[in-house]
Design a protein around this nucleic acid. Structure first.
Lengths: 227, 227
DNA sequence: CTGTTACTGTGTACTCATTCACAAGCTTTG
DNA sequence: CAAAGCTTGTGAATGAGTACACAGTAACAG
């Protein structure tokens, strides 16, 4: 009989200090930061939890709880200092300084990602670019020289990254992931609709656009009854 | 005292029959279907819940529970018929037939989406394409004629869609959404990192790549302790 | 035809996330 | 200077989602 020994990989929570942080909480932190930057652009200096909460469609209690997991950042009757809170959130999210990211695959999607200005604004830079197509290797694409995926180990040794974006074909993907993990890459954002396995401590974020459309389609077909 | 009356828009669950379905469940259904198609490609006819569950990294109990919310599809000692289950899931997700989708914005991202073959494979077709740039309006891009966003109402009347993908600039986005909703569009997949408001019954799925990277960054910086 | 095996579907228990509701405390005003 | 007003941070209660564990049963072997 085959016993299912393999445990579920996806960690439902992370640690901070000694505390468990829900992954959903982390996602909300991103949203808070983005909205705070909008507010800052509009000249706001302070914001109350109920205001910020309304912008991002969560309850004020949830917002306060989320922040309180990491410390006390609010002024008890002025609310939160917008600039300060942005700084705090950037620190938590690890984007206080520009962070290098690797990109695997320079097809249509890869080139679009290279051209996208939003990453650098939010603290990420696609520094290291790989492909397996001899026609692309060595060429400069959108300002980045394209390396041979076969030389990933050597290249990553010279340009270490924590995060890699996967935008290539599914063939051979698992072995690329394995080699990247061995080279020290700790997390992946994958646009490839295929299951990949990683050891504990390494994270994979799947980006499946068709799945998102299917979710919307379900909601439309089975008309959601809202109160 | 000011009471917060506005309720959170994002419905945490949908209805099916008289039953509440968690949004997370719907997302898993997509994954199940995708993996089932892989299995079918490998010639599998039947699959047990513990096998399929392992492929998608959930517990067998969760998989069976998810499916049982919609009916009984398993053979009690052969497991699930792969072909049948794919058909069932396609029906649930509303992708038994090709479904038309609108696209707003034909910049870098928009063109990449138009060129992406994965949508049609999973039952979606970007039928109606809009932009506001006079240089693009009227031209045929990736096989689709580009319409003027100013004429959205008339175009959507002739080509009704339930779902629209937003891949344009943030300026004026809310008013585009409002007009689309008035024209009968019921859900949006937005690549624009901006808050948009929709009435109850309309759904928005945000696709914020930087947010995904921030989440991964958090996990890397605050090293997750796994058992 | 009967016994054995092993799977599905589901009541039940449990864990984790969210919300409630209030104590503590800045700030401002009279 | 004192009191009022409205805020944050958080213990406690609620609610939602997940996992356990088993009753019921199809399939197959003898």
């Amino acid at each position: 009989m085959k016993s299912i020994r393999k445990q579920v990989e996806t960690a439902p929570s992370a640690q901070f200090g000694g505390r468990r942080i829900a992954l959903q909480t982390i996602e909300r932190l991103s949203t808070y930061r983005r909205v705070l930057e909008d507010l800052q652009g509009q000249g706001a200096q302070y914001v109350y939890s109920h205001q910020l909460a309304e912008y991002v469609s969560v309850t004020p209690a949830q917002l306060r709880r989320d922040l309180s997991l990491f410390g006390s950042f609010g002024n008890i009757s002025r609310g939160y200092n917008v600039q300060h809170l942005i700084t705090v959130l950037s620190g938590l999210l690890g984007t206080s300084e520009i962070q290098p990211v690797a990109l695997v695959g320079v097809g249509n999607l890869g080139r679009t990602l290279l051209a996208y200005g939003g990453f650098i604004e939010r603290g990420f830079s696609l520094e290291v670019v790989f492909d397996s197509d001899p026609a692309k290797i060595g060429r400069v694409i959108a300002g980045r020289r394209c390396f041979d995926i076969a030389e990933a180990e050597a290249v990553l040794a010279g340009h270490p990254v924590d995060i890699a974006i996967l935008a290539c074909q599914p063939q051979g993907l698992q072995s690329i992931v394995d080699r990247f993990v061995a080279a020290g890459v700790q997390s992946f954002l994958s646009f490839v609709p295929a299951i990949i396995r990683v050891p504990p401590g390494v994270h994979v974020e799947m980006e499946d656009l068709s799945a998102k459309l299917e979710k919307l389609s379900f909601l439309v077909k089975n008309r959601v009854e809202e109160e």
